[in-house]
Each structure stands twice: as structure tokens, then as C-alpha cells.
Design a protein around this nucleic acid. Structure first.
Length: 409
DNA sequence: TCTGGGGTCCTAGGACCC
DNA sequence: TCTGGGGTCCTAGGACCC
């Protein structure tokens, strides 16, 4: 920084205000609804009959009633009896997210989609003689006028500070967080407001007398590193506004692909669980093949009725994308780990993805079976692509599909 | 009808090897 | 004749994010 401001990176973080709720509101208005649900106590929530009943997003007035994201809908209703609940629609969200992304792409090539409703922009080489903060205000105005929803824009010299800044007062605001502003704007905040400090770490820090981000920033660096390892180094640096990570514009290949479902009631037999596992295998392997990737590891996750999570995994000696193979492995894992518990959730995920199959050494007849299976997978995929995921489905798959909300294309 | 679903990264312990 | 020890792979679990 002593080299002068010319060396500083120019970073923006754009964060959609109440994204799912705002986008649902716009979609409803577009479809002839006259009520703007952004103006009433309202939330986006899952289906309580399917035990998916949590708050995914809230309006400003719902927030004023003390409703927080992630809490059960029944609890939210207790806080606000007049609360209206609307269901999510990820297809719609994807469209609005894309509209935002396209608008932001007019400003820079270096742009990172951090989530469906957040982007980082590296403006360092794209200022074209303008001031960063002016661009931030212009983006806020244009999104509001052209897209119909609002964003917060954080302005800073690195990603962490830009993200912290966009989280200051909302909605429809621009905030800066430059180095000299850190003590005034960030150090006074409770330590739990720091990015990456969640509900498990905050109490541990409080035991050390660390209450604010400033307390953490001024705490002995070596002690925090000793106590919290790599994670400690990171949060101490964050508290001091240090973050050298780059804005990454190319979408990286996924490291793993998984689907899970909370069951409409607790399941208590392998047979019931297996039928869900088959549907999950179809879904996961379909997504895997769409990515043209192969997986080396299969992982089965269970959540018991008393909310205890556990998982088992198996590494294969090759990489696969076959529905039946993934299912067979997953079934074996499930049988090995299941101990007659009441199961609330079951999940399947594949990890250690590669873009080429490590060829299985197999006997001729085995290979024939594999090739047959591969052909079947391809034929089914083609139909799913053309007529929709549910066009080709086993009865058990249909049942499971009803429990699940398909999120992406 | 209390508590979603999709990810990433890190850690710790055991097996195994030299 | 107890007590090495570093490195890698695999697994289970946990923390965090949106």
C-alpha cells in the first residue's frame, strides 16, 4: 500500500437484497398479481407437510418481526401471526440471477458468481478513468431501474472487505470499507459478523474475551493460530482486513455432486431407504453425466430422527458415472452402516470427480454388461433432456421426486 | 407439521510403506 | 530386547458458506 493507490485492487461485491423473496415478488407481479409481497410480512419457505418447513428468505417487515432465515415456519408464525408464506421457484431465481450477471458483465471481464445472488467484480483494469464508488452507485441504480429489484454494493480493495461492506445497512445501499475505515466500520461489530465465524466458533472466542471483530484483530496472532490452526490464521487475517484471494471468473469444475432428501416421515427399513437411494442414484449420476465427469468415491449420508448425522463412503478402484454401479455401491454402504435407526434424511454424493474414466479392467462378459448399461443410461438421459427429468422414471423415483424440489435445469 | 439442500475445506486417526 | 518417524491414502466427522 506504500506503493500508492495505483497498486490497490478495486473490488466490488454485489449482493441481492432478500433475493428469493424479491424475485418471487417480481415473478408474481409479472403473472398478474397486484400485491407486492415485498411490502407485507412474508417469507419464502418449504412445504411443511413434507417436513421442509424452514424460512429461506424474508421481507423487510418479516425481518422487523424478528424472523430469521433458517428458522422453522411454525416459529416464524409465532413471531408474526399474519405472516404469509410462499414457495420457492429456483427456475425463476436462476433467470433473475442471469439477468443480474449479464448486467454486471458490462462493467468487467473479471467477475465471479459467488452464489445465485452474489457476485464479486474486480474492476482494477476496467475503471476507464472512473471512480470505483461511482460505478457502484450506477450499478445499484441500474439494477433497480432495469431489473426491478435492489442490491447492496460493497466497495473495497479486496474481496473480504467488499463482502463485509455489502452486509452493512440494507437495502439498496452502497458502502465502502477501505483500510483506514476498518477500525470505525468493522472493528466495532460483534465478532460473529465476520465472514466465516459461525455459531460454533463464536462461543470459543468469547471464552477468550473476544467480543468484537476488533478484539480478534488485536489478539495475539500466534495464540489464535495455535488454538485454531489454519482456520485461526484466516480469521485473524480477516479481522485485520487481510485477504489476497483473487476474483475467479472461470467456473471451476465441481469437486463433488450430491442430492439428499428429508423424508416425509421417518423410515425404518432398508427396503424403504433403498428405494429412495435408487432415485438419488439416478439423479446424482444424471448430473454427473451431464457434467461429463466420473466419480471415484461414493458417500451415503443419514440423519436420524433425533438429528444425528453420519456418513460412510467407499473409494472405488476406478471412476464411474453409471447409475446402476453407483446404486449398487451406495446400497452396499447403506446396508453396512444402517442399524435400524429411525431415519429422517438420506443423501447420496459422489466425490473425487475426474473428467476421464479410469478404465475398469474387466472380463469380456462384464464389459458387455457395462456397455449395455451405458447405452441405457445414455438413452434415458436423452429423454430426460428432451422431455424433462421426470419423463422417464421408476415408480419409486416418482414418489421420491414428489418429496424433492428439483433445483436446477 | 419444530429444525432444507447444495456445496467446500479442514482435521484426526488408522493402515501401510520405507 | 520395550520407545523411530515421516509420508500418503483412506475414512468419518465437523465447521462454514449461501
Amino acid at each position: 500500500m506504500l506503493l500508492g493507490d495505483g497498486m490497490e485492487r478495486q473490488i466490488l461485491h454485489v449482493d441481492v437484497n432478500n433475493a428469493f423473496l424479491s424475485w418471487t415478488a417480481l415473478d408474481m407481479l409479472k403473472n398478474g398479481e397486484s400485491l407486492d409481497i415485498r411490502t407485507i410480512p412474508a417469507v419464502i419457505g418449504g412445504d411443511e407437510k413434507l417436513r421442509h418447513g424452514i424460512v429461506l428468505a424474508k421481507s423487510m417487515s418479516a425481518k422487523s418481526a424478528g424472523i430469521v432465515t433458517g428458522e422453522p415456519l411454525y416459529q416464524a408464525r409465532k413471531k408474526c401471526p399474519t405472516l404469509r408464506v410462499f414457495s420457492s421457484n429456483f427456475k425463476v431465481y436462476r433467470e433473475y440471477s442471469n439477468q443480474l450477471y449479464e448486467l454486471l458483465c458490462e462493467y468487467t471481464d473479471k467477475i465471479e458468481r459467488f452464489s445465485i445472488d452474489e457476485c464479486f467484480m474486480d474492476m482494477t483494469e476496467f475503471l476507464r478513468g472512473r471512480k470505483l464508488i461511482d460505478i457502484a452507485y450506477e450499478i445499484g441504480r441500474r439494477v433497480r431501474e432495469e431489473l426491478g429489484f435492489t442490491v447492496n454494493v460493497g466497495v473495497a480493495h479486496n474481496k473480504l472487505l467488499a463482502k463485509m461492506a455489502s452486509d452493512f445497512s440494507k437495502p439498496d445501499k452502497v458502502h465502502t470499507l477501505f483500510r483506514e475505515e476498518i477500525p470505525e466500520k468493522m472493528w466495532k461489530l460483534p465478532v460473529g459478523d465476520l465472514f466465516m465465524l459461525g455459531k460454533k466458533t463464536v462461543p470459543k472466542l468469547q471464552l477468550l474475551g473476544i467480543k468484537t471483530i476488533g478484539d480478534l484483530a488485536r489478539y495475539d496472532y500466534r495464540w489464535i493460530c495455535y488454538r485454531f490452526g489454519k482456520f485461526g490464521k484466516m480469521i485473524w487475517e480477516y479481522a485485520n482486513g487481510i485477504d489476497t484471494s483473487e476474483v475467479v471468473s472461470e467456473k471451476e469444475a465441481p469437486k463433488g455432486i450430491g442430492n439428499s432428501v428429508t423424508l416425509p416421515r421417518d423410515y425404518e427399513s432398508l427396503e424403504e431407504l433403498n428405494s429412495v437411494l435408487l432415485a438419488l442414484s439416478e439423479q446424482v449420476s444424471f448430473r454427473l453425466r451431464k457434467q461429463k465427469m466420473f466419480a471415484e468415491t461414493v458417500n451415503v449420508q443419514l440423519r436420524t430422527s433425533d438429528f444425528r448425522d453420519f456418513s460412510h463412503q467407499k473409494k472405488l478402484n476406478h471412476a464411474t458415472c453409471s447409475t446402476s454401479e453407483i446404486y449398487q455401491v451406495a446400497k452396499g454402504i447403506l446396508e453396512e452402516m444402517y442399524r435400524q435407526q429411525k431415519i429422517r434424511l438420506i443423501g447420496l454424493r459422489v466425490d473425487h470427480l475426474t473428467d476421464k474414466p479410469i478404465q475398469q479392467v474387466s472380463l469380456f462378459d462384464e464389459k458387455t454388461v457395462n456397455e449395455k448399461q451405458e447405452k441405457l443410461d445414455k438413452a434415458v438421459d436423452a429423454l430426460k433432456q428432451k422431455f424433462g427429468y421426470e419423463s422417464v422414471m421408476r415408480a419409486s423415483g416418482m414418489e421420491t421426486s414428489r418429496m424433492m424440489k428439483r433445483k436446477d435445469e
